[in-house]
Design a protein around this nucleic acid. Sequence first.
RNA 1: GGAGGCGUGGUGUAGUGGUCUAACAUGCUGCCCUGUCAAGGCAGAGAUCGCGGGUUCAAAUCCCGUCGCUUCCGCCA
Length: 588
Amino acid sequence: MRKTHTAGALRATDEGKSVILAGWVHRRRDFGGLIFVDLRDRYGMTQITLDPQRVPAEVFKAVEGIRAEYVIEVEGTVHLRPEKMRNPKLATGDVEVFATKVIIHNAAKVPPFPIDTDGTDVDENLRLKYRYLDLRRERMARNLTLRHKLIKHMRDYMDRNGFIEVETPILFKSTPEGAREYLVPSRVHPGEFYALPQSPQQLKQLLMVGGIERYFQIARCFRDEDQRADRQPEFTQLDVEMSFVDRDDVMALIETMLVQFTTEQAALHGKRLLYTPFRRLTFAEAMGRYGNDKPDLRFGMEIFDVTVATRDSQFAVFAGAPGVRGIVAPGCAAYTRKQTDELIEFARKEGAKGLVVLHHDPEGIRGSGAGAKLSEAEKAALIAAGGSKPGDLLLLVADAEGIALNALGKLRVEMGTRLKLADPNVLAFAWVVDFPMFTWDKDDSRWVPNHHLFTAPRDEDLDKFETNPGEVKGKQYDLVCNGYEAGGGSIRIHRRDVQLRVMSLLGLSLEEAYKKFGHMLDAFEYGAPPHGGIAPGVDRLAMLFAGEPNIREVIAFPKNQQAADVMLGIPSAATDKQLKELSVSVTL
RNA sequence: GGAGGCGUGGUGUAGUGGUCUAACAUGCUGCCCUGUCAAGGCAGAGAUCGCGGGUUCAAAUCCCGUCGCUUCCGCCA
């Protein structure tokens, strides 16, 4: 080890020590007769001072030539800075190192973008092309450190609770239910393919049949779907499965883990929890009150229902509608016609026929058209239901329940963002439970699983499978936070007969069921224990704790929205030789 | 597959028919400078305004097309 200290280590108490520091030149301040160099490494920054009276002329001359991002090694003595020259902004600001010897390990070209900023206003693809430079910025070092601490906490916590980490294969079987997969051609078996796992779901269930009882894995998952700010083609989950548990056991396990992490690492992320214990909502509540199955609970603005009060309205839009629901945008009564038109257009894009906008003035509720037609009783009902105050703006959708809740849910998020109602330093974790097991896919005319086809139904709903599938609720639970799905899990089916009934409902014949999932059905015939699990998303949790707007900021080498890596230039074409060996032909 | 936003020196922006021979900040280069820490001062280099076509006497600016990036919808068992 060439360094005696890191660039973030030295304090006033180190005065007089001979030290060797090494790292990158963050910035150089050259006074002609005196040079300061800010030496940076992952741990911090230390000021190196070059006084021509204390260093040989050739050392001084060499330092005159160094530039930002040069890699240097400095030998010198720690000096206490004179009182007036201390820098309280720097952890090492009480001291400086008087260099006696400087080695230039490597020069550096001028970086294509600044490194001494947080980087948020640099074009992201440029950052990604030179990711090795981008990672030098303090923010990225902090994010990767936070991610490491989170994963370490997960491993330690799971270990303490009797879980063992078991690796599962990356070369897995194609199971065309669910997300699109990445395929890997087999050379040994021409024309046949492996698939990368969307998650280790089936394997971890088989580990339960294998008697592992408590499994976890920091697992890489692959999904060939279009990207979003919170989605990458490959991502990481804390994959967990346990035997002989109910859903409350799984939820309590993860909740405690996250509460402990938040408390223990508060200095690193500065976030606080809004709900301890985590809030719990049913799917129906989440949809009815927030129009969203992963609501941002950092602010209110709940959806209210005035269907009954407006049934006999003189205002035709309300009277003729299957329902009337709305939200109150606080302090927005002064919105201009242009602004309210924007909101109407927004609601239309989300599928609503329109949006009724009412201004709540000191004199009461007004609004073009509707304001004049609504009775005093209706206006009073609106104010009461929405908790509206003078100065607020009421946004109402008169439409079928599903359409109205969706549009209002999206508007709620939009208004919350515009009005900055969500505290960025707060994490509002919550559990959403009692999801419907199946939803009817109109396009394909079939039932599809809401979660996945291994989720167990509530015991009391078992007999509704054949009569009323839409009514069946699953033993599923989603972990949500600040408007993101941070994880999902369920108690699984562990009996072959129940599993086959689910598969049958989903339209799989016995033959197909065995072809795709025979390994699971077989396993269930050899004493499969009741079991369940969950898979919190590591990237999303790291993003939330780091306060970042997308998961790329907490991944060292992420792919862009086109699923490409602009640094590596991938994906890229394969050679004819490779393709031939794999018996694969490209039909471009 | 669809919708919105963005694309102007290295970087981030301004400029939305003629005064643009393209501005500002920062970075970069050179010179001066012994207490700075976003150092300062002076001087300088650096842009065919994403690309292609069109309209016009005249296009960074208007129109059409196209490419790239990004956000969202679809998709994500």
